[in-house]
């Protein structure tokens, strides 16, 4: 209805029809300055996968070195995430055991794939053993893998799949703008990734200098949705990117909100809890909020969305 460049309209039409994009289409998407057109195409693509649902997870971070879980466990926690780099497989396993002992039914996640490869001497066999030990200790999900560090990922995904563990998300380490596009396109070529990973987090969790802009962030989210068609969810980080940007990102292709805190400052009642805040933001963006846990299992839908 509102005019958009003809060529771009043709590409967004292809996306809507599910037709594969050729090189020229991708160049057009990547090169356009029309953020609204790009965002609209990405929104259409995300709605075809997730309709009007946006999932979110409330996370309790537990530093690796203390492995202390506060008691009682915050009742809003949908994931307990062990953070920090382990010095050895044994240290990782012992931290997971300590956390799982207090986690009840809440899934325990932790570590980056690169860190686990590091403590396994970068040997596939030893990585497989480490993952099996962590699984036996109660780890449900490896938190993330940084895309830039995955040079030959398919065998690693295979080891992960065999261990019975999954990957929380693929994250772009510090790639922004033009450097992010080839990485997103690489992800799209990984055949087996969807068997172990549910989401891509296209916005770096480390703020570069100078900081990214709103335009570049939204463009990256939209391109992630349009270029990565082999992974189900596009994720934004509530804590890292802030409610305003995370919410606007939902209108250009993101469908999952990570790192919503499970605890909040004293004095703010339930109505000001992170759960209420994220829910309010999701609804105000025109979506239905679905609470999930660290294994991507739907816990409930405060606004009555149908379970997946």
């Amino acid at each position: 209805m509102v005019p958009m460049g003809e060529e771009l309209a043709a590409v967004t039409g292809k996306i809507a029809d599910g037709t594969a994009l050729d090189e020229q289409d991708v160049r057009l998407l990547v090169g356009t300055r029309d953020l609204l057109a790009l965002g609209t195409a990405a929104d259409d693509a995300r709605r075809r996968r997730h309709a009007d649902r946006v999932s979110f997870v409330q996370v309790l971070d537990v530093p690796m070195d203390t492995a202390m879980v506060e008691e009682p466990l915050p009742d809003q926690a949908g994931e307990i995430r062990v953070t920090g780099r382990p010095e050895s497989v044994a240290a990782a396993v012992s931290a997971v055991r300590a956390v799982v002992a207090r986690a009840g039914a809440v899934p325990v996640t932790g570590f980056t794939l690169a860190d686990l490869q590091g403590v396994s001497g970068h040997e596939a066999g030893r990585l497989g053993d480490a993952l099996a030990e962590l699984r036996d200790a109660g780890l449900a999900v490896v938190t993330e893998a940084v895309v830039e560090k995955l040079t030959n990922p398919e065998p690693v995904f295979e080891v992960l799949r065999e261990s019975g563990l999954t990957l929380g998300c693929l994250t772009l380490g510090d790639a922004v703008g033009e450097t992010a596009v080839p990485l997103l396109r690489r992800i799209a070529t990984w055949d087996s990734v969807a068997t172990v990973c549910r989401s891509v987090a296209p916005l770096s969790r480390v703020e570069p200098t100078p900081p990214t802009t709103g335009y570049s962030d939204l463009r990256q989210v939209a391109l992630a949705r349009l270029l990565v068609d082999n992974i189900d969810s596009i994720q934004v980080d509530w804590t890292r990117h802030g409610p305003k940007l995370a919410q606007v990102a939902l209108t250009v292709g993101a469908d999952d909100v990570d790192a919503v805190p499970a605890v909040w400052p004293d004095g703010l009642g339930q109505r000001r809890s992170p759960r209420e805040e994220v829910r309010r933001n999701i609804v105000a963006a025109g979506f239905v909020a679905v609470r999930r846990n660290g294994c991507f299992e739907v816990l409930d839908s405060p606004d009555g969305a149908a379970r997946e």
């Binding site: 953020l35 609204l36 900081p211 990214t212 802009t213 709103g214 335009y215 962030d217 939204l218 802030g242 305003k244 940007l245 606007v248």
Partner: peptide, 12 residues
Amino acid sequence: TQGGKVGQLSLT
């Protein structure tokens, strides 16, 4: 009030 990122997006 909106921060730099949403402030910039206002231009769209």
